[in-house]
Structure formats: C-alpha cells, structure tokens
Amino acid sequence: MSLADIQDRSLDDATAFGGQGDVGDYLALLKPRVMSLVIFTALVGLLIAPGSIHPVLGAVAILCIAVGAGASGALNMWYDADIDAVMSRTVKRPIPAGKVTREEALAFGLTLSAFSVVVLGLAVNWLAAGLLAFTIFFYAVVYTMWLKRSTPQNIVIGGAAGAFPPMIGWAAVTGTVTLESTVLFLIIFMWTPPHFWALALFKRGDYEAARIPMLPVVAGEDATRTQILVYSVLLAPIGVAPALLGFASAGYGVAAAVLGAAFVWYALRVYTVREGEPARKAAVRLFTFSLVYLFLVFALLLGDSLFGRLVAGGWL
C-alpha cells in the first residue's frame, strides 16, 4: 500500500490504524470485574499472612497484582478477539466492538505486565514478582493460547491463574510459599471448575458457536453435572482446611462447612434437575452462589484473622 493510498483513505477507514479507543475502552481491557475478585483475594492473602509489611508497600503489592491481572486480561482479549466476536457474553468487548485494535491491546497488556512485575520486585520482593510473572504467563500463554481451544480441561488447569493472587499477597509479606498459602490457592483452584461449568451449562450455545471445547460441548451436559458435583464435594473440605490446619479459628471452620454444604446442595440441584427451564435456573443459581461462596470464605478468613490479632494484641 502506497502512502498516497493511505492518505486517500476516508476517516472511517482510520479505524484500521487504531487510535479510536477512549480511556474507558482501555479500562475495559483490564477486565475490571475479574480484577475486583483478584484484588480482594490477594488482599486477604496479604492481610492474614503472618508478619507485617509497611502499609505503603502492601498497597503497592496489591496495586501491582491488580495491574498484572488486568494486563493478562488485555493479553487474553488480544489473542481471543476472534472468538470474543461470536460470543454474546463478549461481543461488546473493545476489540470486537472496533474501539481498540489487537495491536493496541497487545502493547497495552505487555507494557502493564512488565511494569507490574518489575515494580513489585523492586518495591516488595522478587518471589512475589516471580509468582505474578508466572501467573500472567500462565493465563495468557498456557490457558488462553494453548488450553482454552484444545481441551475440555481448559478451565481446570487454567484456573490456577486465578488461584495465585492470594499466594502472591502472602508471599509479599512473608517472602515464602507455605502450606497455608497453598490452601488459599487450592480453595480457588477447586472452586473454578464448578463455577465456570455452571456458566457453560447455561451459555453452552455461545461456546459451541465459538468452537471452544468446554465440557458441556465436548462431553455433554450429564458428564458436566457429574464433574460439577465431584469438584463441589472436593471443594467443601478444602474450604474448611484453614481451621483444620490451625491458621483460622473453629468458628471459621463451622461457617466454611455450612457454606461448603450449601455449595454441594446447589451442585446436587444441578445434578438432579436436568430438563428445561428448571435445569437452566439451577445452573444459574449455582453460578451465582459460587461467587457468594468465594467472597464469604475469604471475607471470613480476613475477619477471623483480624479478630485474632485484635484479641492477641489486647484490644478485645
């Protein structure tokens, strides 16, 4: 294409050269809703870890984890622009909507990735920074580029990326990876499959249209219901593990057991109600409750830890 050709192009064609997005479009590339969950779980990991961190450095750690998570979201949207364009849930994202070009999203994601990892390493510690770098790599490369389009186990393995933030928060304070932070990782890791498979049950058409091998598309809805139940049964005791391992109180253990039992009950509803609108509603309810479950488990861990510190410090 000659320069004259470029100069002859109409303004509408300028879209192809980028520069169309506003600030809101770039913020949307960061997947703010996912980021809010990452911030919350990372904050809990940071606050319940033994030891202390200067409040400013703690805030920097959370900022870096949030930006790193957002960066991996932008890289995901860069790579998945083709399938985002055919799924109702994602068609309004900035790239399929024509607001941001793929190249702009890639540059944005890579820049934020580099900044978040380097700043976390320089300001806090390099173990936390290494874990953040691995998380971004795992989500953008292992999950998005490799697993998502090739195996129905995509979100089982890829779920690890979403499970790392509390471990990074913990590592920011302690400089270590311990059994306790691994349990925090496992709670989210085991939570992810039933959460996303419940979504896939009532958004199955989307995944079929995009040719993503989600479990309901590949193995069928019955097999998905069984898998949801299995992972829910495994998740319930892991949610209680912080109390069993002694880094949360018995009160937390009881609350987590009740929440875990409720999770299994919702999964049982999905397992038993298999026809028509009631089946769809059961999947929606499990999906909604799974969000409540994760929020409450981490909120309880945080409340439990803060209460314990107040008591230990003689404040209560």
């Binding site: 100069q7 192009r9 300028a14 520069g19 506003d22």
Partner: peptide
C-alpha cells in the same frame, strides 16, 4: 494537507488518552 484528519470525537478521545 490531504491526510487523515481526525474528527472532533477522535480528537476528544486522543486528549482523554493523553491525559490518562
């Protein structure tokens, strides 16, 4: 000066990005 001339809307978005 027959190049690509941004519209007012495009200029507004560019200003927004620059400020950000």
């Amino acid at each position: 000066d027959d190049g690509i001339r941004p519209t007012e809307e495009q200029k507004r978005r560019q200003r927004g990005r620059s400020v950000a």
